[in-house]
Design a binder for these strands. Structure first.
Length: 593
DNA sequence: GCCGTTTTCGGCCCGACTGTTTTCAGTCG
């Protein structure tokens, strides 16, 4: 995402106090780019990049670290960076960045967002042609001025024009994991079926189940790479082959301008290559350093001793064993403390899996705004091997979503009873997704809510309240003894709506005190609460449910993304209530404090 | 700019691919 800090570069504007982690990280990345354009060499630049990764991946909030002067306790952050970050967080501005930016025209940084255009090329284009914006670059390419520069040619011009068109369409937006996963899985199957393939796996942020992904990585082993690379290059839905060498092929798909990278290697290198291309970069660098301490050089080509001999590694677990660590599942590989925990044997041993989940939480039907009937939903849940499904329609206040009046709700119970009697192997639980009103009160009387087996409370309107008001609203809802599950607690929609402002630490603390479960909503655009909050919730002893927020039977598969989010937040089976059988699940929900 | 049972200097992860060259620079992951 291109970084524009109008507030930061306008000296006389008063800045609102809160500068979040993402902004700090982006500022550090911008500094790194500007230093590179300036010609500053490698290591100082990398220090800014590493610090940006560190801040972006921080499990806790930045404010307290700054206030208590503990920034320097973070690896990769020393006195100089700590001072700059403090200045940025406490004043909303950074003098150093402003000085740096003043040396260059404002559009220069955006140029680095184009594919195959980095700081060095930007510096040349600016120095030689005074190109300082995407529009100027486009004109220079069309007029054939770029090809006259040393190191550029006609092909560079054509590629840049293509890149500009692509950039304008995609706007650099990352895709939702839930949208990419079906495409990625289908391509993986195609690769697995290619001649000679021994093993194949997804890698990268898709395998780590990041909430958004920029591209798809596939790693495969085979004696001959050629036929496997061809299988991807010739796959249906491929719009263009971006590059193809002896071991690597990159394509762009028609659907969503998605890029897919495939690497093919001999099987003896599969495990280390898979590990390398799964990342994250930060996790990987930590492991390489640990390897160095033991005289082992770790690279995508395997593990080598200092004398050059190769240490055989056939599974990823073998790599961790060489470093005297527990195996780290891909979802945890973010350098967020998992390296330390794995060395001390402290990683959660019963991390939640999809197989642990016995019932799906949070489903709508044609009774409110869902597309399938109750019976269709029940049969679909059974087909997925689920033992129960909580039916939680919208309540009366959610008029836009066909919210149920109390009389409707009671008629629905009769239909649920009929289906439960007729359909074996799966049970529908009577529930509601009741609106949390502006005051924090719930949209039905206690006397109604008490008759239900599952009560999820969610906010659907009045997202514009300020942080104090919103926090009070949620705390009031948590204090209601009828509320069992807090639904999509931050209200965000990834890439389209910011979360409403709320002090999550207070909300999670209250949820723990009251014994209210918190939803990990698996709808791809929600993933709410996000992994970072899951981890805070788990540390506080908050009980969780993983949910699908289904509005049609296909959405039951969203459960997988809720599980992924929970895993990224280090949630164990025992932290998640819908790993229990139906009866015990219902009983557990009633255990309020 | 960070870091240190080789600590205040001299290291810092590393290889593939492309387009430009004719041995390499830049970008990417």
């Amino acid at each position: 995402m291109p970084g524009h800090y109008l507030l930061l570069v306008t000296p006389d504007v008063t800045i609102p106090t809160a500068v979040d982690k993402a902004t700090v990280a982006q500022v550090l990345r911008d500094i790194s780019l500007l230093l590179q354009i300036q010609g500053e060499s490698g290591f100082r630049v990398r220090a800014y990049d590493m610090a940006a990764d560190r801040i972006a991946g921080l499990p806790q909030e930045l404010g307290p670290l700054v206030a208590e002067g503990r920034l320097e306790s973070l690896p990769g952050i020393g006195p100089a960076l700590a001072e700059k970050i403090s200045e940025l967080v406490s004043t909303g501005r950074l003098g150093y960045l402003e000085e740096l930016r003043a040396q260059f025209p404002p559009g220069l940084l955006e140029l680095t967002q184009l594919p195959d255009v980095g700081p060095k090329k930007v510096a040349t284009l600016w120095r030689e042609l005074q190109v300082s914006s995407i529009e100027e670059l486009e004109r220079a390419c069309r007029e054939g001025r770029v090809r006259q520069l040393r190191g550029f040619g006609a092909k560079s011009e054509a590629k840049m024009l293509e890149g500009i068109a692509l950039y304008r369409r995609a706007r650099g937006e990352r895709k939702l994991l839930g949208e990419v996963m079906p495409v990625a899985t289908a391509l993986l199957e195609r690769v697995k079926a290619a001649p000679g393939v021994v093993r194949a796996s997804l890698g990268g942020s898709v395998r780590r189940q990041a909430e958004t992904v920029a591209d798809v990585d596939i790693i495969a082993s085979a004696p001959e790479a050629g036929p496997v690379l061809d299988a991807l290059a010739n796959a249906p839905g491929v719009a263009a082959v971006l590059g193809k060498g002896e071991s690597k092929c990159s394509v762009r798909l028609e659907a969503g301008d998605l890029q897919v990278d495939l690497r093919v290697l001999p099987d003896e290198d599969f495990a280390t290559a898979l590990h390398h291309f799964t990342g994250s970069k930060a996790h990987h660098i930590r492991l390489r350093n640990l390897g160095q301490e033991r005289g082992l050089k770790i690279s995508e080509w395997g593990v080598h001793r200092d004398d050059g001999t190769k240490v055989p590694v056939t599974e990823e677990s073998g790599l961790y064993a060489l470093l005297d660590m527990q195996y780290v599942p891909p979802e945890l590989r973010e350098d967020n403390g998992e390296v330390e925990a794995a060395r001390e044997g402290q990683l959660p041993k019963d991390l939640l899996t999809l197989e642990d989940v016995q019932g799906a939480v949070h489903a709508h039907s044609t009774w409110s705004d869902g597309r399938n009937s109750l019976e269709e939903m029940a049969l679909a849940a059974r087909a997925l091997g689920l033992k129960y499904l909580t039916i939680t329609e919208h309540s009366e206040a959610a008029i836009y979503a066909g919210g149920l009046k109390v009389d409707d709700l009671k008629r629905q119970w009769e239909e649920i009873d009929r289906i439960n009697a007729a359909v074996s192997g799966v049970r529908l639980l009577k529930g509601i997704e009741v609106d949390i009103l502006e005051s924090g009160a719930l949209d039905y009387a206690d006397s109604v809510l008490e008759q239900l087996e599952v009560v999820i409370g969610s906010i659907h309107v009045r997202h514009g309240m300020d942080e104090d008001q919103m926090t009070r609203r949620l705390l009031a809802a948590l204090d209601n003894p009828c509320l069992q599950i807090l639904g999509h607690p931050t209200g965000r929609l990834i890439n389209s709506r910011e979360p409403y402002p709320v002090r999550m630490d207070e909300v999670l603390e209250r949820a723990a005190e009251r014994g209210v479960a918190v939803e990990v909503n698996g709808k791809p655009a929600r993933l709410d609460i996000k992994a970072e909050y899951v981890r805070q919730a788990v540390e506080r002893g908050v009980r969780l449910v993983v949910s699908c927020d289904a509005h049609q039977k296909e959405d039951l598969r969203n459960l997988a993304f809720a599980v992924a989010t929970a895993r990224r937040g280090w949630a164990r089976k025992g932290d998640v209530l819908n790993t229990l059988p139906a009866d015990r699940f219902v009983t557990a929900l009633r255990e309020r404090r």
